[in-house]
């Protein structure tokens, strides 16, 4: 009888212990669940963050894709135009030599006049090719120290500005360290653009301002105001508002000025192109 009671008691204890164990396990599970829930929340946050990062990255890739497409387009144009330039320069050499040979004979006024016309046409083609090539090829700078006014004069003598356009230079007798041939390409573009903008007549003002660390060249024309949406795209390659423009003029100007470690900007009302070239260009190029 006593034995039986003890056994019953034991059973009771066992059941109780079993229940306590169960409760403990339950508590433990709840804790685990809570812990997992927190973990899950953190993970969800992380996923959200990664999603956002992914979106930014996708956007970046899209932008890079567009840029790559543009640069592929540009390099295709570069390749094509250098090929065309090479193929055109040989025939131009032939025409020029043939012209010279014809001029060795005595010519009638009529013949001489026509040969001069051909000669001028050849020169136009040459400068068009040079302009395209100056955009395509990035030859190293040949740095010299020279007077800005000399570069301007040399440019003006090579382009035929209409006589109705008045050129005014202010403080241009300033020495500058630059590649004069390349700067002449920039001036040629800016002066021709100004002449185009002013159509028949107007003022072309070139002013040099000496800063402590740089030379600032301002090229101003009295042409019509450049619309805002055009102003922001002026230096973008292939952008043009001219019917026969290539869209390479100003972008090659920017390439050349960037090569000089400088900047070129445009502003309207009045139209002014501002070039800034550092005075210590020689030491910058040496380091590069």
């Amino acid at each position: 009888m006593k034995k039986q009671t003890v056994k019953k008691h034991d059973n009771l204890i066992n059941t109780e212990q079993e229940q306590i164990r169960k409760i403990a396990t339950k508590n433990n599970n709840i804790e685990k669940i809570n812990f997992l829930k927190t973990e899950l929340e953190i993970a969800a946050n992380q996923i959200q963050m990664q999603d956002a990062e992914l979106e930014t990255a996708t956007n970046r890739i899209q932008v890079q894709d567009a840029e790559m497409e543009k640069s592929a387009k540009l390099s295709a144009i570069g390749l094509l135009s250098s090929q065309i330039a090479h193929d055109l320069r040989s025939p131009l050499a032939i025409i020029e030599s043939a012209l010279w040979l014809l001029r060795q004979n005595s010519l009638t006024e009529e013949q001489d006049d026509k040969l001069q016309v051909i000669g001028r046409a050849v020169n136009k083609m040459k400068s068009e090719i040079d302009r395209t090539l100056s955009f395509v090829r990035n030859t190293p700078l040949e740095i010299q120290t020279c007077l800005i006014s000399n570069i301007i004069q040399s440019t003006l003598s090579n382009i035929n500005l209409p006589k109705s356009i008045k050129v005014k230079t202010i403080n241009c007798d300033v020495m500058i360290v630059c590649d004069p041939k390349k700067l002449e390409i920039v001036f040629t573009n800016l002066f021709n653009n100004a002449a185009d903008a002013m159509s028949k007549s107007g003022d072309l003002i070139i002013e040099v301002i000496e800063d402590q660390n740089s030379n600032i060249i301002k090229v101003q024309n009295s042409g019509p105001t450049i619309p805002k949406d055009v102003l922001s795209k002026l230096f973008v390659p292939l952008f043009t508002t001219k019917q026969n423009g290539t869209g390479l003029g100003l972008s090659s100007c920017r390439n050349i000025i960037t090569q000089h470690a400088g900047t070129i900007t445009a502003s309207s009302e009045p139209t002014v192109f501002t070039i800034e070239i550092p005075k210590n260009l020689a030491s910058i190029v040496e380091k590069a």
Binding site: S90, P91, A93, I94, S97, A98, W100, L101, Q104
Partner: peptide, 17 residues
């Protein structure tokens, strides 16, 4: 030396002149 026959032609005339 050039692979363009016309260039050779005019250049040689220039040179002989």
């Amino acid at each position: 030396v050039d692979d363009d026959a016309d260039l050779l032609k005019v250049m040689s005339e220039v040179i002989t002149t």
